[in-house]
Design a binder for these strands. Structure first.
Lengths: 218, 218
DNA sequence: GTCTATAGCCCGATAGAC
DNA sequence: GTCTATCGGGCTATAGAC
């Protein structure tokens, strides 16, 4: 409403700065929330990391909760955007392989998103209560329905669809969430897994899961 | 040294109380650390939950770090104790199946341990630096060696052993770590997964992984 | 819109009476 | 060994000058 009164010039300029600052804050917040969880993260550190004064964070996002909600919302949007649904009429082998590849790319390119979500769930998911409301059961049924179709058509063995979905999630997210343990186990000097290692992981998962479901023969 | 001067009666009594209180504190700390991570947990809440005054926690454990180290150490001891190594001379199918069952029982019976460790790793594992020192690479090589033996003997397909181990870890721990998401997806009213659901999950994982490695035929 | 200054609270840790 | 009382510091959030 108020914005309508202001000139276009001001709108653009102000909007641009706002968007830039909000992005800076969100980027800094993702690092802090991924490192310390919701309660452990501090607005002070987020402010220092973003290069903005502490009070500006309260100006752009009403509160710590508001900032965290924005970060979580970004993560859910990213996943909805990137992960397309499996096509019941498609070839199971191709569909599953493409899904595993897409999830592994997400783990490689957006590890912070995966970790923030993971820590939130492990901590009890108190901030995702709404997200996990009744609609979630139906959404999940949509995820498993594809496999029931394929099983009914004899395209794969009668694997429990829900637990297959959990396996797809857990095995792929592991490479984002537990990367510091993986690095330690493989003796990588620091931080991120090499691209080649990620590719090996992807191919290994595709092999075991597809063959394990009887979709590909040995 | 000082203890030797005191009477046996005092020793026993004091030792018993100390052990009881330490157990109470550790139990309360596990709940708080699993819910808020290291930085987010507060000694105050741990004290209230344990029914002891705040200062006693500093008396029994020197500091917050000391208490957290004790909790983490308990978790690592539990896993060393329960998870026996795979026998290279044993039957791969039986050995792998037994391992998956053992890890799923741990996820079911000690979900807090799994979550505390998981949150610590996801947060960067700063408090496990020593644990992940050079010895860890060798320990991990010991884990993967069994599979290399089996592959050389033609008992299983040439699966990358390291990524197979990661799959075993991720798929089983998921049921402890992400239980609140699993409950939401399956429409369980609250908290813990039913025993029957856990059994279904275990059998599904055994089926997919063993068949996926070419250890069991379809 | 931006930023300084500060209120009010909870934190980890300790001193010291019992 | 136990527990109260308290210190110093960092926290979220806001008031108000610019």
């Amino acid at each position: 409403m108020l914005i309508h009164v202001e000139s276009h010039k001001q709108d653009k300029s102000v909007g641009r700065i706002r968007q830039q600052n909000e992005s800076k804050i969100i980027a800094a917040a993702e690092i802090e929330f991924a490192r310390h969880g919701y309660k452990g993260a501090s607005i002070q550190n987020i402010a220092e990391r973003s290069g903005l004064p502490k009070a500006n964070i309260h100006y752009y996002f009403r509160s710590k909760q508001g900032l965290y909600a924005a970060v979580l919302s970004n993560i859910l949007d990213l996943w909805d955007e990137v992960l397309s649904e499996l096509d019941p009429d498609g070839d199971p082998a191709q569909e599953l392989e493409a899904y595993i590849r897409a999830k592994m790319v997400l783990s490689r390119d957006y590890p912070l998103a995966s970790r923030i979500f993971g820590i939130e769930i492990m901590s009890g998911g108190a901030h995702l209560k709404e997200y996990f409301q009744d609609g979630y059961v139906d959404w999940f049924k949509g995820r498993t329905a594809v496999f029931e179709t394929w099983i009914a058509q004899g395209k794969m063995q009668p694997i429990d669809p829900a637990h297959l979905v959990f396996l797809l999630w857990s095995s792929t997210q592991h490479y984002a969430d537990f990367s510091c343990q993986i690095d330690a186990a493989l003796g990588k000097p620091q931080a991120m897994l090499e691209r080649a290692e990620f590719d090996t992981a992807t191919e290994t998962l595709i092999h075991i899961i597809l063959q394990g479901c009887g979709i590909r023969q040995p």
